[in-house]
Amino acid sequence: MTHTKLRKLKISYGDNHALKEINVDIPDKQITAIIGPSGCGKTTLLKSINRIIELSEGVKVRGEVLIDGANIYGKDADVLALRKKVGFLPQRPCPLPMSIYDNVAFGPRIHRLSEEQITKQLEKQKTNGLVKKEKSKKYQDYSKMDHLVEHYLKLAGLWDEVKDRLHSSASKLSIGQQQRLALARVLAIEPEVILADEPTSALDPLSAKLVEEQFKLLKKDYTIVIVTHILRQARRIADYVMFMYLGELIEHGPAEKFFNAPQKDKTKEYLSGEIS
């Protein structure tokens, strides 16, 4: 059973119909890769899942995106709650103008998490086993928020690199580190779905690898949708693939089937590199 379903989703920018009737179920706790040539509507589709698309000018959304059975574009839908549930990782990391620590604490702070809520959230996190527990550490003078920041920086694979300079500026980090910080920031709001728009395209191969590895770990606990134009990356990490072309969803299915036995001609052409 999946929690995220797109039904007859159509999006246009003025007269430009960027998305034409998208119907798809996004599988839970897997990595779904959206692939397709430039300008085919990958970003538009991704941004429609947490309504960040509405920040663009002249955009019109029709159809439904159902999350847990409710249409997120419905009249009484709560956008802020939705965005807490569906985190978004942009193409270019954009650290907030504050310290590394405050970047991670930003989400929990704006959502006004109480100490008990933080404790509960961290307890739940412990059960997923993604971050190894360390024993001999003095935690008396740590606040709940300190624990939270440490946890999510570890979860994003950044902790060891920044633990000694948590209060220095986030914009001084390298681009690769900034992207993992953005990941930590998104994880800290405890989303169920993580949307990532070409999260490695601004990174060097090594940093890209780190982020990919992190995603592979995280899918155990999160539903991940990633836009990529690198076919090899999709092959490496995707469990499910959506191929888009000129605003249409041409083909979608489990990665193995998609790559080994594509059904549509367009898909075959794209996979063989005839269209790009």
Binding site: P90, C94, G107, I110, R185
Partner: peptide, 26 residues
């Protein structure tokens, strides 16, 4: 940068929080 605002909104920040915690600072 629009991306900075987007980053804030996409975490569920309100317009007020985005304006006064992010944009004002920047």
């Amino acid at each position: 940068p629009a991306e900075l605002k987007e980053a804030s909104y996409s975490m569920g920040a309100t317009r007020f929080e985005t304006s006064f915690k992010i944009v004002l600072r920047q």
